[in-house]
């Protein structure tokens, strides 16, 4: 075990760093874009019947497709993987933001209006806070899936933990596979726990409804 860490330790740390960098940057971009888009789309709740299936449809596009197409379009640069992952990560957050906002009960909207809130104030003080649980669970989905698809950065020679996994697979080296797979699994679990933490901070206790 110690031998293994001596040989691969540095490599694992470096790969994990690259991996995390891709994930965080692309999810941050996706979050900014999808929050804005989600709010804009939510101003047209009448189109929900068209918008929602469309978003669900895009969610079924595998990440490899975005990575592949961008690779062909701009080549082997980090931007390829970051943009591809960001595009992939947009859909879960966008959908949840949109659904979260349009599902805010009409009585709260009316109460906000009746209290004299402008549209913007109602959005910031009432609609977004009430949509927050949905937005955060969208964020978790994006984050976890992005960690997963970022493994494919190695497919086009851009590093990350996938490097170790693919190297292990092609050289039939089980230790190498695990050296990539276990840290990747750990990273995803930690990201998920991080979101739980964030949720705990942002959402007051009586509003957290654990269904199970």
């Amino acid at each position: 075990m110690t031998d293994f860490l001596e040989i691969y330790g540095r490599q694992i740390a470096q790969a994990a760093g690259t991996h995390l960098y891709y994930v965080l940057l692309s999810v941050a971009i996706a979050f900014a874009v999808s929050l804005t888009l989600g709010i804009l789309l939510s101003r047209a709740p009448r189109w929900a019947n068209i918008i929602l299936p469309l978003l669900s449809l895009f969610q079924t596009v595998p990440g490899i497709v975005f990575i592949g197409l961008l690779f062909l379009a701009i080549g082997i640069v980090p931007a390829t993987i970051i943009i591809a992952l960001a595009i992939y990560a947009i859909f879960p957050i966008l959908k949840n933001t949109y659904v979260g906002i349009i599902e805010v009960d009409e009585s709260y909207r009316e109460a906000a209006k009746g209290c004299g809130m402008s549209a913007l104030q109602a959005l910031i003080r009432v609609e977004l806070p009430l949509a927050l649980p949905a937005i955060i669970s969208g964020l978790r989905m994006s984050l976890v899936y992005t960690v997963s698809w970022a493994v494919l950065a190695a497919m086009i020679g851009l590093g990350g933990l996938g490097d170790l996994i693919f190297a292990g697979i092609s050289s039939n080296n089980n230790a190498l596979i695990l050296a990539g797979a276990l840290p990747a699994a750990l990273m995803a679990i930690l990201c998920s726990l991080g979101i739980d933490l964030l949720r705990g901070i942002l959402i007051p206790r009586p509003l957290r409804r654990d269904v199970l």
Binding site: D105, S107, Y108, E110, A111, A112, G114, R125, V126, P129, L130, L132, I203, P204, L207
Partner: peptide
């Protein structure tokens, strides 16, 4: 004041 009360739950 409305019937559904409309207190903001958050």
């Amino acid at each position: 004041v409305i019937q559904q009360i409309g207190l903001f739950p958050h």
